[in-house]
Write a protein that binds this DNA or RNA. Structure first.
Length: 453
RNA sequence: GGAGGAGUGGCCGAGUGGUUUAAGGCAGCGGUCUUGAAAACCGCCGAGUGAAUAGCUCCGGGGGUUCGAAUCCCUCCUCCUCCGCCA
């Protein structure tokens, strides 16, 4: 397929980065969103009036240029006209500077506004207002008197999770997987990708490092820069003018394959006939998670580096909610195939991610923690990312381009799945049963043998 | 890492300072003709902003020179060729 790239000047403010018709819905997010919206409207008004004024000046310059081209370059008339136009040129330059400052201001404000929740999303104040959509399976039962262990106890006893050496090599929140933990990770990755490709997803193996522009396209930036690992910038060559330094080679460790895969089609106008597009991708994920100190400090739940298979869809606006349900079902298949007990939550307005219009979380049962924990998050971003990343489609030949809807969901987090397997399939003797679906990927092994005492 | 070359509308491609407010071709859409199709002929045919069939902006991105830049200068990005290095 040829790459269809269209110029979309950086100078043009993304006035429609947030659909103006959805501003009322954005207010459901609560907090000081209302104030931010009002502020943006003022700046945007200023931008429009500056633009109008500047356009008028440019129009007069353009018609003057037409006359200039016909004049004798040595005539007194030419010289007089040129001197007069110098004034106009400097006025235009002034206005351009003012406009571009206002545009930058408007754009920065817009980038900080969250997406509008879909009408079906429940209002809420915090995560306790999320709603249970359904529950699948039942919690494993253990013999009387046996208290199920945490996965880190199970894993360390088996010698397959090495937290101490992970920290020695790389610091806190890095873990070394050994033996069957390593093998199971590989097995899970293949099991998930095989499952999704057989369900019509095209497999993608993306780069792990991404540019600032890509992170901005999927809305991790500019608001959440503190959560992403950034590579040290190479020094610009000596003598480089500051205004000419564009951070296009400013690289980050991708926090999720959603970034790479969604940006596959940034700056493109897709043909309607190719929609919906369904991708699945494995990628290592890196999160700095500033502010998460003290949460889940033990175990594999919250790591700076983890593995995940991601599902991404590009759809028309008309079908995106049906596709969201289908995507969530495809993620659920992974857990069902492994026989892991889980539930599905519909997130309320307060708990949804910044860019999402609607999100379902899959929460797997962890007997060692006696709790459900998030293992997948499936969201419809509607046109929020499409506007930032400029992903459009043409409904019919000759039609104006429209924004696509982008969706993504974990399909699913591999490390947390390993956690769930270790906890749900642990046996009294310390051994762990391998779910049947994974055995073909583990050389037929049925059980990780109990640790030698 | 070093040395060269190149980036123009869906595709190809002209254009080295002012009738380019981007030629021409291909593809696409509409029409004439035809029983139908092909061919031929005629017309339409990039995007963004904007209430707009007005105006303005966009020739990889950004900046500069000039009354005026696709065209000249700087810089970044991307691709290609050769050398080096490497898995």
């Amino acid at each position: 397929m040829g790459l269809t790239r269209r110029a979309w000047s950086r100078h043009v403010p993304k006035a429609n980065m947030l659909d103006p018709n959805r501003m009322d819905d954005v207010l459901r997010r609560g907090g000081d969103v209302g104030k931010a919206v009002e502020q943006w409207k003022l700046v945007d008004q200023k931008r429009k009036s500056l633009q109008g004024e500047l356009d008028g000046l440019r129009a007069s310059r353009n018609s003057a240029n037409e006359r200039m081209s016909k004049l004798d370059k040595k005539s007194a008339e030419f010289v007089a006209a040129r001197d007069e136009l110098k004034l106009l040129a400097s006025k235009i330059k002034e206005d351009e500077a003012a406009l571009s400052a206002t545009e930058a201001d408007a754009e920065q404000q817009l980038l900080m506004l969250p997406n509008a929740p879909h009408s079906s999303v429940p209002d809420g104040k915090n995560e306790h207002d999320n709603q249970v959509l359904h529950v699948w399976g039942t919690a494993p039962t253990f013999p009387d008197g046996f208290v199920p262990k945490n996965h880190w106890d199970v894993g360390e006893a088996l010698g397959i999770l090495d937290f101490e050496r992970g920290a020695k090599i790389s610091g806190a929140r890095f873990t070394v997987l050994k033996g069957w933990a390593s093998r199971l990770t590989r097995a899970l990755m293949n099991y998930m990708l095989d499952l999704h490709t057989s369900n019509g997803y095209q497999e993608v193996w993306p780069p792990a490092l991404v540019r600032r522009a890509s992170l901005r396209g999927t809305a991790q930036l500019p608001k959440f820069e503190a959560d992403v690992f950034r590579l040290a910038m190479p020094e610009p060559p000596p003598g480089t003018a500051p205004e000419s330094i564009v951070p296009d080679n400013d690289l980050f460790l991708s926090p999720t394959a959603e970034v790479q895969v969604t940006n596959l089609h940034s700056d493109e106008i897709l043909d309607a006939s190719v929609l919906p597009i369904k991708y699945c991708a494995y990628a290592p994920c890196f999160r700095a998670e500033a502010g998460a100190y003290g949460k889940d400090t033990r175990g594999l739940i919250r790591q700076h580096q983890f593995d995940k298979v991601e599902l991404v869809k590009f759809t028309t606006p008309e079908t995106s909610y049906a596709e969201l349900d289908a995507l969530r079902t495809d993620a659920e298949r992974v857990l069902q195939g492994l026989g892991l007990h889980y539930r599905v939550m519909t997130l309320c307005t307060a708990d949804m991610g910044f860019g999402s219009s609607k999100t379902y979380d899959l929460e797997v049962w962890l007997p060692g923690q006696n709790a459900f924990r998030e293992i997948s998050s499936c969201s419809n971003y509607e046109d929020f990312q499409a506007r930032r990343a400029k992903i459009r489609y043409r409904p019919n030949a000759g039609d104006k381009p429209r924004m696509v809807h982008t969706l993504n969901g974990s399909g699913i987090a591999i490390g947390r799945t390993l956690v769930a397997v270790l906890e749900q399939y642990q046996q009294v003797d310390g051994s762990v049963i391998i779910p049947p679906a994974l055995r073909p990927y583990c050389g037929g092994l049925e059980r990780i043998p109990a640790p030698a005492v």
